[in-house]
């Protein structure tokens, strides 16, 4: 069989096939609905992300609150961080001036 001739014949048969351009009923409405759903999905995505972020912030805040609540209270006020900081900062000022002593 002449394969090249058969190829030509079949290609010619393919060319003769008319284009089928039927569009299903209300196809454009379906696409628009998809586009709107897609836009809504984007908002849902952001909203979900924000809620997750908010939930993790609340969890961290709660955890820190619990730690603070159950931390043993030191009766000695001198162990206060602010006091320690002030003492360290003013330590040089508190030193007695020895330069004028003969």
């Amino acid at each position: 069989m002449n394969v090249a001739e058969l190829q030509k014949k079949l290609i010619a048969a393919g060319r003769r096939q008319p284009a089928d351009d039927r569009v299903p009923y209300a196809f454009e409405k379906r696409i628009l609905a998809q586009l709107r759903a897609q836009a809504a999905d984007q908002w849902v995505f952001w909203a979900r992300g924000m809620w997750r972020a908010a939930a993790s912030c609340v969890a961290v805040a709660g955890l820190l609150g619990v730690i603070t609540l159950f931390q043993p209270q030191t009766p000695d006020n001198s162990r206060d961080l602010s006091q320690d900081f002030e003492n360290a900062l003013l330590a040089s000022a508190d030193l007695p001036d020895t330069s004028s002593v003969p």
């Binding site: 284009a19 351009d21 628009l32 586009l35």
Partner: peptide
Amino acid sequence: DAASFEPLIVKYSPRVFATARR
């Protein structure tokens, strides 16, 4: 304005369908 996309879909869908059917 997503609704303005509709006339484009209506106009060109036959060509897109004809190509996809191939």
